[in-house]
Every structure is written in structure tokens, then in C-alpha cells.
């Protein structure tokens, strides 16, 4: 099975965010919010890192 870089990072973000959300916060609402926050941070970091690498190369 070969995933693209983006798909691999996307799946990684989903799984890690679910676990972080559940384990770090107490109530269901807080867990969902924190999970979404982690997912957004993962994806944001991914896109920023991608553009930084693009800028370094050019």
C-alpha cells in the first residue's frame, strides 16, 4: 500500500487528533473542540511546512 505524502499526513492527523481529544479533555464537548483544534494545527503545520520547503527550494 502506497499513500501520497499528503494522504499519509492527513490520516496521521485524524488518528492523533482523535486520541489527543479524548485523552486530554474531560467533557464530550471539550474533547470534540480540542480534537478539531489539534487536527487544524496538524494540517496548518503541514501546509506551512510544505510552503517553507517550497520557498527553500526556489
Amino acid at each position: 500500500m502506497v499513500l501520497s505524502h499528503f494522504n499519509a499526513a492527513l490520516l496521521f492527523s485524524v488518528f492523533a487528533s482523535v486520541v489527543f481529544g479524548i485523552t486530554v479533555r474531560d467533557t464530550s464537548r471539550e474533547q470534540i473542540r480540542y480534537g478539531l483544534y489539534c487536527f487544524a494545527m496538524f494540517m496548518g503545520g503541514l501546509i506551512v511546512a510544505g510552503w517553507v520547503m517550497w520557498a527553500l527550494r526556489h
Partner: peptide, 18 residues
């Protein structure tokens, strides 16, 4: 169930990706 799904899927995908 959410923890189980996430962790098991991640491990299985890791194996599938060699």
C-alpha cells in the same frame, strides 16, 4: 471504540505500508 479504531487502524495501515 474511538481509541480502539484510531490506534488499531493506524497500526494496520503501518503494516500495510510495509
Amino acid at each position: 471504540l474511538l481509541l480502539m479504531t484510531s490506534i488499531v487502524l493506524m497500526f494496520v495501515l503501518g503494516l500495510l505500508m510495509d
